[in-house]
Every structure is written in C-alpha cells, then in structure tokens.
C-alpha cells in the first residue's frame, strides 16, 4: 500500500520546537506580532525543506538557522529596526511593572538587560540570545549567522561586554573599594 501521508512526522517537529522558536523570535524582533509571523514562516519553510533534510541533521539548530535568517531579512530596513527598538523599550518597561512584588528587583535587572540586548547590533543580539538564552553551541550559532564558530563567540563576547558596561551604575557586585 501507499505510504499514509496524513501521519506527518513534521507535526512532532512543530510540537517540540514551535514554542521555543517563537520565544527566540520575540527577543530577536522585540515585537511579539513579528514573532508570530516569523515563527510561522520559519516552520512553513522548514516544512517544505524537511524531506530533503539528512536524517541525522540537528533539527533544532536547523530551525534556529531558518529563524535567524528570517530575522536578519526582516531587519534589512533600518527604519523598521528603529521602530522595533522603540517598541522594545516600551515593552520591557511595561513588563517590569507588571511583575510580582518579590521579584521586582530581579525583574528590573532582567528588564534592563532586555533593553540593552534589544539595542545591540543585530548579529550580537541574535548570537547572545542563541547562546545565553537557548544554549546553542557556537558552531550552530555560526551556521545560523553564516560565520565561523569563533566569530559567533566574538559576537557573544561583545554583547556581554556591552551588557556588563550597561549595568555599571547598578554596582552588580559589591567589591571592597581600594583605599
């Protein structure tokens, strides 16, 4: 008999990865509406190419690469990017105030980090999010960004450096002052 094509193995790919890719794209684009669109587009593209994917491929890393590629295309227009940053700043501060009392300080710091991340150059922002939020390895990040694993590591370093400088006034660690 002919293979039953209604039992689509891609359904399990959607079930396993859609929520995470969506979360990644919320950070990548700073706009939930864009994340809705781009996450759908990611999986539509993946669906069409899924059959030609080698059986031993890392599906998760491959999905991140598609999502990353779509994000970069999405931001090709500088105007859009500026709008997105403004929206990110607004969104991040909104969230800070809506968090439960006990987590207020942590959330304020998280919101600050989110704001700094949203203002990072795109490659640094994507590399940072893939590494630090989604814990992909540098080679996978490099493939997503079409650069080497070493360059991916450098992007993450630059991002961390800027975040670290951005939090300077918070005095995030209490050190003994030198006399």
């Amino acid at each position: 008999m002919v293979r039953d094509m209604t039992e689509d193995p891609f359904e399990s790919v959607v079930a396993a990865h859609h929520a995470e890719i969506h979360r990644y794209l919320v950070r990548a684009t700073s706009r939930p509406g864009d994340a809705d669109d781009l996450s759908q587009e990611t999986f539509v593209r993946a669906y069409k190419a899924y059959r030609s994917l080698p059986p031993d491929a890392n599906v998760r890393a491959w999905l991140f690469a598609i999502a990353t590629n779509l994000s970069r295309n999405h931001f090709r227009g500088e105007k859009r990017r500026r709008q997105a940053m403004a929206a990110a700043a607004a969104g991040a501060s909104e969230r800070g105030s809506s968090w439960p009392e006990g987590e207020a300080i942590a959330s304020q710091t998280s919101a600050r980090i989110d704001r700094i991340v949203a203002a990072l150059p795109l490659k640094q922002r994507l590399a940072f999010t893939m590494r630090k939020v989604h814990e992909l390895d540098y080679d996978a990040i490099g493939e997503s960004l079409e650069c080497s694993g070493e360059s991916a590591r450098a992007h993450v370093f630059q991002a961390l450096r800027k975040i670290r400088r951005g939090l300077d006034d918070l005095d995030i660690v209490h050190t003994e002052r030198q006399p």
């Binding site: 859609h18 919320v26 939930p32 994340a35 996450s39 969104g91 942590a106 630090k132 939020v133």
Partner: peptide, 19 residues
C-alpha cells in the same frame, strides 16, 4: 542574571495563537 532570562517569561511571548 543572564541565566534568569532563560527562566523569565518574555512579554507577549504566548505562542498559542501563532501555533
């Protein structure tokens, strides 16, 4: 702090409708 980002909810990140 960055590790907290992994656990923290992201504003507007409800994927239900998009899914």
């Amino acid at each position: 702090m960055v590790a907290d980002l992994r656990r923290a909810p992201v504003a507007g990140a409800d994927p239900t409708l998009s899914r």
